[in-house]
Amino acid sequence: MIILIIILPIFAYLCLKISSLKDKSLYLFMIIYPNVGFIGFPLLQSLFGKQSLLLTALINMPFNLSLFTLGMMIMSNNKSFQIKKLITPGIIASLIAVILYIFSISLPETLLQPIQLIGNMTTPLAMIIIGATLSKYPIKKILLDRKIYLFTIFIDLIIPMIFSPLVHFLIKDTMIQAMTMIILVMPVANGAVLFAKRYQQNEFLAAKTVFLSTLLSIITIPVVALCFI
């Protein structure tokens, strides 16, 4: 949690401080917040089994707190936030999940099935929003942006490489080591598009970065998993 929520934002801020990029607030957001929810949860479950879901949920709670405090401040260029904005469906669901796990509470099938159906809609809906945003622009502007490819390589390969020694030094549990590295190599969170839309940031830049980083993660995730885990 410290690596993801404190060290990574400081590292990202220092990197962008010396860069000449425009839209620095958006770039900072995209470095700090990888796609833990839509891709991280199913990928970690497939790699490490159901026991990884609770650990991922525990990581995701402070991650969401950071998203709706620091993330909102970055994207809105505002140094204040309202505490009520922390009460989000993601935070509430994570807390409920931890309570259910601790007390070994089983929900009836009549509740589980509709909850699962609703949960399964989140990824397709996020993809639809990104696709609708990208559909407004020529395909060449999406696929031939050299700057986005370089940025994607930086966040999907260079950052995990830089953080790998720190992860292995600070974390002794091999499973949590691997989970941390997998989270670090996740593509840009879909929320970057939604936040860019909400706070009048460069929505097209966010959408094509999410798209290309997700597309390239088909290569970068296995590379990092083979070389640094």
Results as ranks from 00 to 15, higher is better:
residue 78 N to T: 10
residue 78 N to M: 03
residue 78 N to L: 03
residue 78 N to I: 06
residue 78 N to G: 04
residue 78 N to D: 11
residue 78 N to C: 13
residue 79 K to E: 10
residue 79 K to Y: 07
residue 79 K to H: 10
residue 79 K to I: 07
residue 80 S to I: 10
residue 81 F to I: 01
residue 81 F to L: 02
residue 81 F to Q: 02
residue 81 F to N: 00
residue 82 Q to A: 11
residue 82 Q to E: 12
residue 82 Q to C: 09
residue 82 Q to S: 15
residue 82 Q to G: 09
residue 83 I to L: 11
residue 83 I to T: 10
residue 83 I to H: 05
residue 84 K to S: 14
residue 84 K to W: 04
residue 85 K to R: 14
residue 86 L to W: 00
residue 86 L to Q: 04
residue 86 L to S: 00
residue 87 I to S: 09
residue 87 I to Q: 09
residue 88 T to W: 00
residue 88 T to E: 04
residue 88 T to I: 05
residue 88 T to A: 04
residue 89 P to M: 03
residue 90 G to K: 01
residue 90 G to P: 01
residue 91 I to H: 04
residue 91 I to R: 05
residue 91 I to S: 04
residue 91 I to N: 09
residue 92 I to H: 01
residue 92 I to Y: 05
residue 93 A to E: 05
residue 93 A to F: 10
residue 93 A to G: 10
residue 93 A to H: 04
residue 93 A to N: 07
residue 94 S to K: 06
residue 94 S to M: 12
residue 94 S to E: 14
residue 95 L to H: 05
residue 95 L to R: 05
residue 95 L to N: 06
residue 95 L to F: 14
residue 96 I to G: 02
residue 96 I to M: 10
residue 96 I to Q: 02
residue 97 A to P: 06
residue 97 A to G: 11
residue 97 A to T: 12
residue 97 A to S: 14
residue 99 I to N: 02
residue 99 I to W: 01
residue 99 I to R: 02
residue 99 I to G: 00
residue 100 L to P: 02
residue 100 L to A: 00
residue 101 Y to A: 13
residue 102 I to A: 11
residue 102 I to S: 12
residue 103 F to C: 04
residue 104 S to D: 13
residue 104 S to N: 15
residue 104 S to K: 14
residue 104 S to I: 07
residue 105 I to P: 00
residue 105 I to T: 01
residue 105 I to N: 03
residue 106 S to A: 11
residue 106 S to G: 03
residue 107 L to T: 03
residue 107 L to Y: 08
residue 108 P to R: 08
residue 108 P to M: 07
residue 109 E to Y: 09
residue 109 E to L: 15
residue 110 T to K: 14
residue 111 L to V: 05
residue 111 L to S: 05
residue 111 L to W: 12
residue 111 L to Y: 11
residue 112 L to T: 12
residue 112 L to I: 13
residue 112 L to G: 05
residue 113 Q to P: 00
residue 113 Q to G: 00
residue 113 Q to C: 03
residue 113 Q to L: 12
residue 113 Q to M: 12
residue 113 Q to Y: 14
residue 114 P to R: 04
residue 114 P to V: 01
residue 115 I to E: 07
residue 115 I to L: 15
residue 116 Q to R: 13
residue 116 Q to E: 13
residue 117 L to T: 15
residue 117 L to N: 13
residue 118 I to G: 06
residue 118 I to R: 05
residue 119 G to K: 00
residue 119 G to Y: 02
residue 119 G to L: 02
residue 119 G to T: 01
residue 120 N to Y: 07
residue 120 N to V: 06
residue 120 N to I: 04
residue 120 N to T: 06
residue 120 N to F: 03
residue 121 M to T: 15
residue 121 M to I: 10
residue 121 M to S: 14
residue 122 T to D: 06
residue 122 T to N: 15
residue 122 T to V: 11
residue 123 T to L: 15
residue 123 T to F: 13
residue 124 P to A: 01
residue 125 L to M: 12
residue 125 L to C: 11
residue 126 A to W: 09
residue 126 A to G: 13
residue 127 M to I: 15
residue 127 M to C: 11
residue 127 M to H: 07
residue 127 M to L: 15
residue 128 I to G: 09
residue 128 I to Q: 09
residue 128 I to D: 06
residue 129 I to M: 10
residue 133 T to M: 12
residue 133 T to P: 07
residue 133 T to C: 12
residue 134 L to Y: 01
residue 134 L to R: 02
residue 134 L to T: 04
residue 134 L to Q: 01
residue 135 S to H: 11
residue 135 S to Y: 10
residue 136 K to A: 08
residue 136 K to S: 10
residue 136 K to G: 08
residue 136 K to I: 06
residue 136 K to N: 13
residue 136 K to H: 13
